[in-house]
Amino acid sequence: MEKFEGVYISLVTPMTKDYKVDYKRLSEICEWLIGKGVDGLIPAGPLGEYATLSNEERRKVVETVIKASKRRVSVIVGTGASATRDVIDWAKHAKSNEADGILALPPVNYKPLENEVITHFEAISEVGIPIIAFNNPRDFGVDLSPDLLAKISESENIVGVKEFSGDIRRVQEILEKTNLEVFVGVDDLAMEGALCGASGWTSGVSNALPEEGIKLFQLAKERRFEEASILYRDLVKLFHYDANPQLIQSIKYMMELAGQPVGPTRPPRLALTNKAYKEIEHHFNKAINTEA
């Protein structure tokens, strides 16, 4: 039986107009998403602008989300950092605040050897908190292949993988070669991933459209392909933004369109062009109107 399953939201970090973290709004967003039925929340993850946060801000973001969850849903904390010791410190902070697990990248800003990747995860595992390994070779240049994951998963606290390679064939191979749970890591493969046996989905666009995301993933898990594909066609143009370099700006704008504004992104991320905003609004309104 899976420890983590269903739709987990890779949370954005709300900001005020002067780029301060809006913790009150973050708590409100968590409450709204939980009310919509999401299965879990991921603070300080890929969409959380963690690289622009001070350590104090990052700690408070994590603590705010855990407090807001009130144990109603699982909280998996992002631990992205350059040094293994810093990842370990974030893992310890998550554990001390009673998070349910962490999301951990392989070594970044460096092309590691296989034994370095394995040793990195072994060291994190010693913290004693469930770990979802994050495979994103496109952005970080390290590929956690199914064979490498089989070796990494020998550490007892490695329980799953967020698969962001874009190769849907990976899902079945990981399930065959490891005992890991597989999370779909990119939104525009959510339906395919569920059909292939993924137990969970870490979603970005579902920040703005949680009910639609939950419905899509559940239909696909139940192998109700025709119903799932209709909904998927309505959403897939929005899902493509999840793998775009401007994904955070795009998803924050989708949340504004959904009536859940979360403010701007911190520089170096700037506002999108008017053309980009119009395109997002077009696809958003089309999806909502078709769903209605």
Results as ranks from 00 to 15, higher is better:
residue 256 E to M: 12
residue 102 I to T: 02
residue 75 V to W: 01
residue 43 P to Q: 03
residue 147 D to P: 11
residue 203 S to F: 04
residue 273 T to S: 13
residue 140 F to E: 02
residue 224 R to G: 10
residue 254 M to S: 04
residue 93 H to S: 06
residue 207 N to C: 13
residue 149 L to P: 03
residue 130 P to R: 00
residue 187 D to W: 00
residue 169 R to Q: 13
residue 99 A to G: 11
residue 212 E to M: 10
residue 42 I to N: 03
residue 154 E to D: 14
residue 47 L to S: 08
residue 177 K to W: 13
residue 98 E to V: 09
residue 44 A to C: 14
residue 234 D to Y: 14
residue 22 D to S: 06
residue 127 V to Y: 00
residue 25 R to M: 06
residue 215 K to Y: 09
residue 116 E to G: 08
residue 4 F to V: 02
residue 71 R to V: 11
residue 107 P to S: 06
residue 9 I to T: 01
residue 109 N to G: 12
residue 162 K to L: 12
residue 14 P to H: 02
residue 117 V to N: 05
residue 50 Y to A: 05
residue 27 S to M: 04
residue 226 E to S: 15
residue 209 L to K: 10
residue 196 C to E: 15
residue 69 S to P: 10
residue 220 A to R: 04
residue 153 S to H: 09
residue 37 G to V: 07
residue 71 R to Q: 12
residue 164 F to R: 01
residue 84 T to H: 09
residue 160 G to S: 08
residue 230 I to G: 06
residue 4 F to H: 02
residue 107 P to F: 00
residue 178 T to F: 08
residue 83 A to V: 13
residue 181 E to C: 05
residue 156 E to R: 10
residue 271 A to I: 08
residue 231 L to D: 07
residue 120 H to C: 03
residue 79 T to E: 07
residue 106 P to I: 05
residue 79 T to S: 11
residue 227 E to N: 14
residue 28 E to A: 05
residue 10 S to Y: 01
residue 168 I to P: 08
residue 10 S to W: 01
residue 22 D to A: 03
residue 282 H to W: 13
residue 70 K to L: 10
residue 276 A to L: 07
residue 214 I to V: 12
residue 200 G to H: 03
residue 134 F to G: 01
residue 129 I to Q: 01
residue 168 I to C: 10
residue 175 L to S: 07
residue 167 D to C: 11
residue 104 A to M: 04
residue 257 L to A: 08
residue 275 K to Q: 13
residue 72 R to K: 12
residue 245 P to N: 11
residue 118 I to G: 03
residue 68 A to M: 07
residue 36 K to R: 12
residue 60 K to P: 09
residue 115 N to P: 03
residue 178 T to N: 11
residue 198 A to C: 11
residue 16 T to N: 10
residue 49 E to P: 09
residue 156 E to T: 06
residue 228 A to N: 10
residue 259 G to A: 08
residue 44 A to Q: 05
residue 138 R to L: 11
residue 292 A to V: 14
residue 186 V to N: 01
residue 144 L to I: 11
residue 24 K to H: 13
residue 277 Y to N: 08
residue 213 G to W: 06
residue 240 H to E: 15
residue 248 I to Q: 06
residue 50 Y to T: 03
residue 143 D to Y: 09
residue 209 L to V: 12
residue 251 I to C: 04
residue 129 I to Y: 02
residue 171 V to P: 02
residue 150 A to H: 10
residue 269 R to A: 10
residue 56 E to N: 13
residue 273 T to K: 14
residue 179 N to G: 15
residue 142 V to Q: 00
residue 23 Y to F: 15
residue 38 V to N: 01
residue 258 A to F: 01
residue 81 A to D: 07
residue 240 H to L: 11
residue 105 L to W: 06
residue 1 M to H: 14
residue 203 S to P: 03
residue 157 N to H: 13
residue 160 G to E: 05
residue 53 L to I: 08
residue 236 V to H: 11
residue 10 S to N: 13
residue 261 P to L: 04
residue 235 L to S: 02
residue 224 R to I: 12
